[in-house]
Amino acid sequence: MTESTAPPPAHGHDPHTGGSGAQSSASAVKETRLTNLKTNTAYLALGNKAATKPSSVATRSVLTTFRYVFRYMIRRMFRVAKYAAIGGAIAFVGTGVLGALGTGIAWFAAPSMGMGIGMGISWAIVKFTWRHRPERFRGGWWSEMAERAFEGRDPNKDEEADSEAADAAVQQKMENKRLRQDVWARAETV
C-alpha cells in the first residue's frame, strides 16, 4: 500500500545475501512488504503518534478514515451493550419483583373468584353503612327538600330563603376574614 523509502536492489550479485540477483530482489520485496505492513499497522493503531508513518498521503488518509470508522463502531457497540445490560438488569429485577408480588396480587385483581370476593366485601360494607348510618346518607338537604315538597311550600320562597342564608354565610366569612387581617380590630374585640 505504501511506497518504499529504501532504494531498489541492484541487479546482479548482492553482497549481503551472497546469492544471485533474483533471490536478493525477492527477499527485498518481502522485506519491503513486511516493513510496509508493520508501518501501516502501527499507523492504524496509533495514528499520528506512530514512530513511522506511511509515505503516501493516500495511504495515510485511507488508514485514518478506517481508524475513525472502526473506533466509532466500537464505541457504538459498547454503548448499545451498556444499554442492553442495564435493560436486562432492570428486566431481571422487575420480573423477580413482579413474580414475587404478582402471584399474591394477581388472583385478587384478575376477573375471577378473587374479584367476586372483593366485590362482595365492597357491597357488604356499603349496605351495612347505609342501614346503620341513615342520617349520614339519607338525611341532610335531601330530606329537607322532601319535607318541603310534602308540606306544599312554595319553591320560589324556599329558594329565596336558601339564597339569603347563603348570602348571610358568605357575609359572615368575609367579616371573619376582615377581622383576621385587621390587627387593631382583633385587639378591640378581645
Rank of each mutant, 00 (worst) to 15 (best):
T2N: 12
T2I: 10
T2D: 15
T5A: 03
P8T: 04
P9D: 00
P9T: 02
H11M: 04
G12A: 11
H13E: 10
H13I: 05
H16I: 11
G19A: 09
A22E: 14
A22P: 13
A22T: 04
S24L: 02
S27W: 08
A28I: 00
E31P: 03
E31Q: 09
T32A: 15
T39M: 05
N40C: 15
A42Q: 12
A42R: 06
Y43A: 01
L46W: 03
L46G: 01
G47T: 02
N48S: 15
N48R: 10
N48W: 02
K49R: 10
K49F: 03
A50V: 15
A50Y: 11
A50E: 06
A51Q: 15
A51D: 13
T52A: 12
T52G: 11
K53R: 14
K53W: 09
P54D: 05
S55G: 12
V57W: 09
R60H: 02
S61K: 15
L63K: 09
T65P: 03
R67N: 08
Y68M: 10
Y72A: 12
M73L: 14
I74R: 14
I74Q: 13
R75S: 04
M77T: 05
F78A: 01
R79G: 13
A85E: 02
I86E: 01
G87E: 00
I90N: 02
A91K: 01
F92I: 06
F92P: 00
F92E: 12
T95F: 00
V97Q: 03
G99T: 04
A100W: 14
I105G: 02
I105K: 02
W107S: 04
W107E: 09
W107M: 03
A109Q: 07
A110L: 07
A110Y: 03
A110H: 07
P111T: 06
P111H: 07
M113S: 07
G116L: 10
I117K: 14
G118A: 02
G118P: 03
S122V: 05
S122M: 12
S122F: 11
S122T: 13
I125P: 06
V126M: 12
F128H: 08
T129L: 12
W130T: 15
W130P: 00
W130A: 15
W130F: 13
R131Q: 09
R131G: 01
H132Q: 13
G139F: 02
G139L: 08
G140W: 12
G140L: 11
W141Y: 04
W142D: 08
W142A: 15
S143M: 10
E151Y: 01
G152T: 00
G152V: 00
R153I: 01
R153M: 01
D154L: 05
D154I: 08
N156V: 13
K157T: 14
K157W: 00
E159Y: 10
E160P: 01
E160A: 06
A161D: 13
D162S: 12
S163T: 05
S163M: 13
E164C: 09
A165F: 03
D167P: 05
A168C: 00
A169I: 00
V170W: 12
Q172R: 15
K173A: 07
M174Y: 05
N176G: 15
N176Q: 13
R180Y: 12
D182G: 11
D182A: 11
T189L: 09
